[in-house]
């Protein structure tokens, strides 16, 4: 593998893993606070799966540069993280959390579907593994969009409000990282443009069927994964506190 392709692949794997870790941590804030017990458990399951996916992506990076996944997760500062801004936003209410998870799950499922044919065998293998778990997530969050959108006036209003906020943030999921064109040219990862097209088609249909209106005015749309919202700093401060306090953490 040429060195610039290798560097780009390392950056892409990092971005994939970082999205999963940060979103998982955000959603883990609901554990013990879910609206009903079943949903508390369901979201905890989804979080656990997303952490499993992050472990696989960091593991692929480790094969390329020998980096330690725990070091990457717990000892990098916000400036070194390459997650998108959508996953950093505070958890908000249940509608906000479910909408974000739905928009992310749909993107992830469609990206994975396109990435099944990657020319990089370790990535293609990880995709086959993850895709089987992701469909359960999408099935679950898809149902929540219907339930909240068609539920009461209040649930519809809250979901609509979340959509106004998140719609433009979600578009960052389809912004290629620097060097991604090299990976696409060699077939290592799929082109994001057709994935975005399918995502728009699916999400628009589902959101409208649930009684929601797509925002007319494009809001703030982040572009570079090198920049973050202020929320990432406080999230990492909490997430990394135990590891930084006692890196070995052998005594409980």
């Amino acid at each position: 593998m040429r060195s610039e392709v290798r560097e780009a692949l390392i950056a892409k794997l990092t971005a994939l893993a970082d999205d999963e870790v940060i979103l998982a941590h955000r959603n883990s804030e609901w554990v013990g606070h879910g609206p009903i017990l079943e949903e508390d458990i369901a979201l905890a399951n989804i979080v656990q799966d997303e952490l499993g996916h992050a472990t696989l992506w960091y593991g692929l990076r480790q094969q390329l540069d020998g980096s330690d996944p725990d070091q990457l997760a717990f000892f990098r500062d916000a400036n070194e993280y390459r997650c998108c801004e959508l996953v950093e936003l505070p958890k908000g209410d249940w509608a906000f959390t479910m909408l974000r998870q739905y928009l992310f799950d749909l993107y992830e499922a469609l990206w994975l579907e396109a990435a099944r044919h990657s020319t990089y065998p370790p990535l293609a293998e990880a995709v086959q593994k993850i895709i089987r778990e992701e469909r359960f997530h999408l099935q679950h969050t898809q149902a929540w969009i219907e339930r909240l959108g068609q539920g009461t006036e209040e649930s519809n209003r809250r979901l609509q409000q979340a959509l106004e906020m998140q719609w433009s943030y979600a578009q960052q999921l389809f912004v290629p990282i620097p060097g991604e064109e090299l990976l696409i040219a060699e077939g290592l990862v799929p082109d994001l443009a057709p994935v975005k097209e399918r995502w728009l088609e699916h999400s628009t249909r589902h959101l409208q069927a649930a009684g929601l209106k797509l925002p007319i005015n494009p809001g703030y749309q982040p572009t570079s994964r090198a920049y973050h919202t202020e929320h990432l700093w406080s999230l990492l401060a909490e997430m990394q506190s135990t590891a930084r306090w006692d890196a070995e953490a052998k005594v409980w």
Binding site: E38, I41, A44
Partner: peptide, 13 residues
């Protein structure tokens, strides 16, 4: 089905 997610990742309720 009561819940697609259960007490462990591999089970539903």
């Amino acid at each position: 089905v009561k819940n697609t997610f259960g007490p462990t990742l591999c089970k539903a309720i």
